[in-house]
Amino acid sequence: MAIIKAKNLGYEYFRRDKEGAVEGIVKALDDINLNIKQGDFVAILGHNGSGKSTLAKHMNAILYPSEGTIWVDGKDTQDAGNMWDIRQTTGMVFQNPDNQIIGTVVEEDVGFGPENMGVETKEIWERVKESLKIVGMYSYRKNAPSKLSGGQKQRVAIAGVVAMHPKCIVLDEPTAMLDPVGRREVIRAVRALNDVENITVILITHYMEEVIYANKVYVMDRGNIVMEGTPREVFSHVEELAKIRLSVPQATKLAYELKKAGVPLPDGILSAEEFTEALCRLL
């Protein structure tokens, strides 16, 4: 069953000059069609201004389409009565870890969502414990968030969403402000959500290395979906990706260049290990 389905989705906003008069209309999203199944790990790739964050905000009823429709778990987001149900179904994690932590102690922050939903006190505690364990932050439950590292804060934010028991989590560039260590921690937590808890994950990013774990990739450019498929399929189009200012992982790039020079390597190599293996087979 489709957890998120979009049909001819469009979103436009007015660009205004300094006096507030309308200068022009910007189409942030144009005729988007999506079909994301429960349990999928989907990555949405795109350069700055490609409309990927705008699309993410449609999945949580923060923005509403100006054209077409988007259904979350079968519910139309434009129906005002569905808003809170939708926000419960798809949780959202944002880019800046500091600006989404509400509590002054880790466990209080994780409990914020369930509190808003009116969950019983005893169950809140169970949910907090369980979600902090999933992201590996249980031993920090009594700490102040301001004392944690960026990657740890982002994992707390993820736990805060997991505690709401969503079917789907949308992560809007969760690693953009983190160092490589933090980035790895967050991606590991996200993969655990998908593998162990079977939560649908929609990861929005421009780091290619994070995309290889997804089972479906959408590539966006100027409000359109220009490519879709498995990471292997998408990364075999090295030149088309370069045209929209996206670079492929290093191993893929090297394999591609070697192939162009006449080395018979398979298409769409994703990691260094895979690359070495393919190379060894040739020898």
């Binding site: 800046n96 914020f112 019983e120």
Partner: peptide, 25 residues
């Protein structure tokens, strides 16, 4: 900017004022 982001994050986590809210502690 932070206030704006935080308001968005709170809304995304179903915050809608005090009524109907339970307490963790």
């Amino acid at each position: 900017r932070r206030a704006n982001d935080l308001a968005l994050a709170m809304e995304a986590r179903c915050y809608r004022g005090g009524s109907g809210r339970t307490k963790m502690k």
